[in-house]
Design a binder for these strands. Structure first.
Length: 484
RNA sequence: GGCGCGUUCGUCUAGUGGCUUAGGACGCCGCCCUCUCAAGGCGGAGACCACGGGUUCGAAUCCCGUACGCGCUACCA
């Protein structure tokens, strides 16, 4: 068993979208599987009918695939251990649970919600541990049969023996032990016939031959129940690895209230999947060196569970943005083009007016100056339409009484150009500078202002080249008229 | 309340008993480069390694306690 290839699973409940914390759990499972020639399985834990959300599974799978995390087995990709949706496995849970009852490891419980509430209230008042009192565990066979015959609603509970010490080794946290005294007789099968998470996850992990259970830290306290369950069934206990939590800036568990948590939110805000995956991988894991930039295949190569941290990590948007910029710069303008077109459409910029060639040049000139593609449209609107206003502070600083004449001369020189070569604009400008014995800066800044309306941005010759001779000349003329 | 897990710059982290006057990255500040804005380069501020006891010649690193934080404590997952 030690040398068999690992089988791991990402087992979300379909609540409607993929949470970034879920993404990280999925990613670590994926990385671990791929690193070790293992199998990555997607299993849907939809045993809570009250939480059913239409389209949630499709959504989850879409987000996962967008991130590049392809699963080997799962819904729509049946392997030998399906179905992979728990609501389709109800008989399995019920049968196995009955075996537990027969073996005395579990029992029928007919307690009403009212009795349970009263019990908890009483225990709370007396300052005692809130636990089920095994009331129904003491029912005789005939009593149970009679209740069943009368169709009384029931659940099946785990029968946990007191005085045990439950121990296991967590790959990330080491040896952990619990006293069974404080482990409740957990409900295994609900009155609606559905299993609880605890039952379903143990049965499925065993039947799907899961070797490593890699999941969030919130499961750590219920792990002893799972260990006991494996033992009751007589099954081998898998390896556990409990991941640290992702946190809000105030160090509470990452939540909707304090920002975006869905992968699709980040996608629609213009983050590249490469950046999101890279960033999330680094929240709680490092290879141990100083490297921060990774592609997915490089993460696979470098990953190991043993190097996962124990403590929670704050989700830092600033660093995510930086990584986004890093990944942006590594992409070719051709790869970035669809993203630009997409944001142009969102901002109602007529696509047909701009050729791919034109936009590719725009991207080349702006890529070093933005963290997101949409910032090209926001920070350099002058590539999409002529400036309507000219920055007053730049006028004050760069535009003086002799500027109009100089600009007029530039128009003359530009007119002589036979192509839109960048060098042509540069030499033309230098001709004017020499003729009037002024520094090129005295032409460059007013020229930039004329072309863009602002004081910053790509090199002026680049802007002129991209806009072209005609458009540049028109803009200079307009500026001469408008700027007083 | 009980149980469990955690605690190194604001944030992500390196560090597994001497190499550490605690290293890197994001962010912040300054300088350089420069037609501007970025990018890039260089430098700076920023952590008495939660606190208190041990163990040891020597501890961020091992042990114990305390504090704080978080998680769990459902017929939710």
């Amino acid at each position: 068993m030690i040398h068999e290839t690992p089988r791991v699973r990402f087992a979300p409940s379909p609540t409607g979208y993929l949470h970034v914390g879920g993404l990280r759990t999925a990613l670590y499972n994926y990385l671990f599987a791929k690193k070790n020639n293992g199998t990555f399985i997607l299993r849907i834990e939809d045993t809570d009918r009250k939480r059913f959300v239409e389209g949630a599974v499709e959504n989850l799978i879409n987000s996962l695939q967008w991130c590049g995390l392809e699963f080997d087995e799962g819904p729509g990709k049946e392997g030998s251990y399906g179905p992979y949706i728990q609501s389709e496995r109800l008989d399995i849970y019920k049968n196995l649970c009955n075996e537990l009852v027969s073996a005395g490891k579990a029992y029928y419980c007919f307690c009403t919600a009212e009795r349970l509430d009263a019990l908890r209230q009483e225990q709370e008042q007396n300052g005692k541990q809130k636990m089920y009192d095994k009331h129904c565990c003491n029912l005789s066979d005939s009593e149970v049969q009679a209740n069943l015959a009368n169709n009384l609603p029931y659940v099946i509970r785990m029968n946990i023996a007191p005085g045990l010490v439950v121990e296991f080794d967590d790959v990330i946290r080491g040896h952990i032990s619990f006293n069974s005294e404080i482990i409740d007789d957990q409900v295994l099968l609900k009155s609606d016939g559905f299993p609880t998470y605890h039952l379903a996850n143990v049965i499925d992990d065993h039947m799907m031959k899961i070797t490593h259970v890699i999941r969030g830290e919130e499961w750590l306290p219920s792990t002893p129940k799972h260990v006991l369950l494996y033992q009751s069934f007589g099954w081998e206990v898998p390896q556990f690895a409990h991941l640290p939590l992702l946190l809000n800036p105030d160090r509470t568990k990452l939540s909707k209230r304090q920002g975006d948590v869905a992968v699709e939110d980040y996608r629609s805000k213009g983050y590249l999947k490469e950046a999101l995956v890279n960033f999330v991988a680094l929240l709680g894991w490092t290879a141990g060196d100083d490297r921060e930039f990774y592609y997915l295949d490089e993460l696979i190569e470098a990953f190991s569970l043993e190097r996962v941290n124990k403590s929670g990590a704050v989700f830092d948007l600033q660093k995510l943005s930086w990584l986004n910029a890093e990944h942006l710069r590594k992409k070719t303008s051709e790869e970035l083009l669809p993203f630009l077109r997409e944001t142009m459409a969102e901002k109602n910029i007529p696509a047909e007016k701009f050729t791919d060639n034109y936009l590719t040049h725009v991207i080349d000139s702006m890529r070093e100056r933005v963290q997101f593609i949409y910032e090209i449209v926001e920070n350099a609107p002058y590539f999409f339409s002529a400036p309507q206003v000219f920055d007053e502070s730049v006028i004050a600083k760069r535009w003086n009484e002799k500027t109009p004449e100089l600009m007029q001369q530039l128009v003359e020189e530009f007119s002589k150009l036979s192509s839109n070569e960048k060098e042509g604009f540069e030499t033309a400008l230098k001709v004017v500078a020499e003729k009037y014995t002024v520094k090129t800066a005295e032409l460059i800044h007013p020229l930039r202002l004329s072309l863009s309306g602002v004081g910053g941005g790509p090199g002026v010759y680049d802007i002129a080249m991209i806009l072209g001779k005609e458009e540049s000349i028109n803009r200079i003329k307009t500026a001469i008229e408008k700027i007083k």
